[in-house]
Write a protein that binds this DNA or RNA. Structure first.
Lengths: 158, 158
DNA sequence: TTACCTATCTGAATATTGTTCAAACATAGG
DNA sequence: CCTATGTTTGAACAATATTCAGATAGGTAA
C-alpha cells in the first residue's frame, strides 16, 4: 500500500487536470481543433489559472469549515502597507488549511476560509497561524452545511 | 466569430475537465495504471465531485466579489425547516452569480459568496434574488483583493 | 469599394495519453 | 495457515490532444 490517495489530493488541490476537449466538442457541436484553439487562447490571456478537482471535503478529512473575519491591528499596516500585504497576508495564504484570503473594504480587514478535519485541528491552526499576526479583533463563523462550493452544488443526503 | 469563449467558461465552471494521469505518474514516479486505479477509487468513493477550471475572475467579467451574511426571518424556518433548506436555500444556490452557500452556526444563518461584473450587477442580484427571501438582516462585505481562491494563489501584480 | 493585416476556424495527420485486463502482490480476518 | 478483498503493474489497445497549413471572417485605412 503506497498511500497514493494523499498525494493525489495534494496535487488535485492545485491543478494536474486538463480540459476534456473531445467531450466539449460533442457538447457544443464544434470541431475539436476549434475548441482547442479557444481554450489555449483563454490560457494565454490568463483568464484560466488552472484546472483542479473539487472534493467532498467530509471525505478527505476536511469536513470542518470556518469563515474567519479579522481586524488587523492598525500598527500592522498604517505605516507600511507593503509589509502588510506581502508578509502578513501572503503568509496566511500559504497554509494548506486556507481555502481563500480576501482583503476587504469596510468593517473587516480580512476574510479567511479555513478547512480542517475537526474543531481541534482548527484550534491548532488558530494558535499556530492566526495568533502570530497582530489582531485587534476576530470572529469565527462556523459552517454547518455547504450547499454550494466553488460554483459546484454539493449533493444533499450524504 | 462563434463566441465559443462564453460557452467554455460556462462549461468549465461545472466540470468538463479530467486528471492528467501521465503527468501525475511522472511527478510521483508511479505507473500510470496505478494512478488511474487510485483516481477511479476516489471518484467511486465520492471524494472527488468534479474537475473544473479556476479563473482569473477579473478577466471573465466577474471581478466584483461580495460575501453576504444573512439572518433569515424566524418565520421562514422555525416551523418548517425542510421548506427553509429545500426551497429557500437551494433556490439561492441555483444562480450563476453564487459561488458558495453555507448554512451557519451562531449569529448568522447563511453566508453567500457572490461574483458579478460590477457593483451595478450586484445590486440587481440583491434586488432580484436575495430580496425575494424573507430576511431579517443582512450585510454585504466587499472584497477588494483576492490573494487565494479555492486553494489557488492568485498571482499578484496584474 | 478594395487591399491588407490579424484573428479565428477547420480537417486531416500525428503524437500523446487514457483505459482495459489478467496476473502478481499485499493485507486483514478467521 | 488459508481465503477473500483490495491494490499494483506491464503491455496491448482505444481514445484523445496537438499540430499545421489552408480557409474564412473581421477590422481598418486608403
Amino acid at each position: 500500500m503506497k498511500n497514493i490517495k494523499a498525494k493525489l489530493i495534494k496535487l488535485f488541490k492545485e491543478g494536474y487536470c486538463t480540459p476534456q476537449i473531445a467531450r466539449i466538442a460533442k457538447k457544443i457541436n464544434e470541431p475539436s481543433a476549434t475548441i482547442h484553439y479557444n481554450i489555449k487562447k483563454l490560457e494565454r490571456d490568463g483568464a484560466i489559472k488552472t484546472y483542479k478537482a473539487v472534493f467532498d471535503y467530509k471525505k478527505i478529512e476536511e469536513g470542518f469549515c470556518v469563515y474567519v473575519l479579522i481586524n488587523v491591528s492598525p500598527s500592522e499596516y498604517e505605516y507600511d502597507w507593503s509589509r502588510y500585504e506581502s508578509k502578513i497576508v501572503s503568509e496566511l495564504a500559504k497554509h494548506k488549511e486556507v481555502e481563500s484570503v480576501d482583503i476587504m473594504a469596510g468593517d473587516w480587514d480580512l476574510i479567511l476560509k479555513i478547512r480542517t478535519k475537526d474543531q481541534d485541528e482548527y484550534y491548532d491552526f488558530l494558535r499556530e497561524v492566526v495568533s502570530r499576526i497582530a489582531i485587534q479583533k476576530s470572529i469565527s463563523l462556523i459552517s454547518l452545511k455547504q450547499l454550494k462550493t466553488n460554483f459546484v452544488l454539493m449533493k444533499q443526503h450524504e
